[in-house]
């Protein structure tokens, strides 16, 4: 075998374990879900195999699923904006800090050491009627009766923001950290104020990181299931909750498969749009 041929094979050999894992653990189960989505449910007993379009028709035409999907995208979008507004200053501070950057980054990573469910449930102890915030407000004499703050869409967004914020900060940080600070100095030396230098130099250069963080937050937020269960009220649900209910509560695996594929396709389109205009390289940098 020639050296060229061997070199050409080498990347594939190195990639083989990862590709095998992706094929076996992602592609094959996904194919099962695709097949299942065309079957018909049976409440008691085995589902009916075949090629039926009923589930897809329901998923694509039923107003109920459309409304929940739109609401899911709305919640994910609000969360992403909240993460961007909160995350950018934090990322900027970390990127521009001298000496203690590593400590700040480690502090940013600390929440990942605690279970997402525990972190979400911590809001019950903060916002509950006998939680820390109400207790503090009553103690300070600001209120006399506890305020009902939990179990609504706002707390769902709050919980999601809490969960997703580190992803946003990390992505923006990676972008900001790669910007030469002398560019800002050059802008100010040419007469720009610090704010103008930021708006016209730093912010545009950091947009790829912001976009990568936005994509991650949006996709993860739109696919979440546990936050509305813990922090939402009776009506609050996201699309993943419908998938859960179809598969687990109603034992309607075929419909649940169609719904999960629909969500995957919607988010896939968003990722494709992102890739078309910004490329996936920035996302990889942020995750790295």
């Amino acid at each position: 075998m020639s050296i060229e041929a061997r070199e050409a094979r080498q990347p594939w050999i190195l990639l083989a374990p990862a590709l095998s894992a992706i094929f076996l653990l992602l592609i094959v189960p996904l194919l099962f879900i695709v097949v299942y989505s065309f079957w018909l449910r049976s409440a008691v007993g085995a589902d009916t195999p075949g090629f039926f379009l009923d589930n897809w028709k329901a998923a694509l035409t039923d107003r109920f699923y459309r409304d929940i999907l739109l609401n899911t995208l709305k919640i994910a979008a609000i969360t992403t904006v909240a993460c961007a507004l909160l995350g950018y200053p934090a990322a900027y501070f970390i990127a521009r800090s001298k000496g203690n950057k590593m400590i700040l980054l480690i502090m940013l990573m600390l929440p990942f050491w605690i279970s997402y469910i525990i972190r979400t449930m911590s809001w019950i102890n903060i916002l509950g009627v006998s939680g820390a915030l109400n207790s503090a407000l009553i103690w300070a004499g600001i209120i006399s009766e506890p305020i009902q703050m939990l179990y609504n869409e706002t707390t769902v967004i709050l919980g999601l923001t809490h969960f997703l914020l580190p992803f946003m900060v990390l992505n923006i940080f990676v972008s900001l950290d790669g910007i030469d600070t002398s560019l800002e100095d050059a802008a100010t030396s040419l007469g720009a104020t610090r704010w103008q230098a930021f708006l016209q130099v730093t912010l545009p250069l950091s947009l790829p990181g912001l976009a990568a963080g936005g994509l991650l937050c949006f996709v993860l937020g739109a696919g979440t299931y546990i936050t509305p269960v813990i922090l939402g009220g009776p009506r609050d649900a996201m699309f993943a909750n419908l998938v859960f209910e179809a598969i687990i509560r109603q034992l309607n695996w075929p419909l649940g498969s169609a719904l999960s594929l629909l969500l995957l396709m919607v988010l896939g389109v968003l990722v494709a749009i992102y890739n078309r205009y910004l490329g996936m390289a920035q996302l990889a940098k942020g995750l790295g």
């Binding site: 409440a43 008691v44 109920f64 009506r235 649900a237 179809a246 309607n252």
Partner: peptide, 19 residues
């Protein structure tokens, strides 16, 4: 109850979400 499960469980999912 098992005879009505398919219809009622699905309808409840909708009613719960405001329908």
């Amino acid at each position: 109850w098992n005879g009505n499960e398919a219809e009622w469980s699905e309808t409840f999912s909708r009613v719960q979400r405001g329908y």
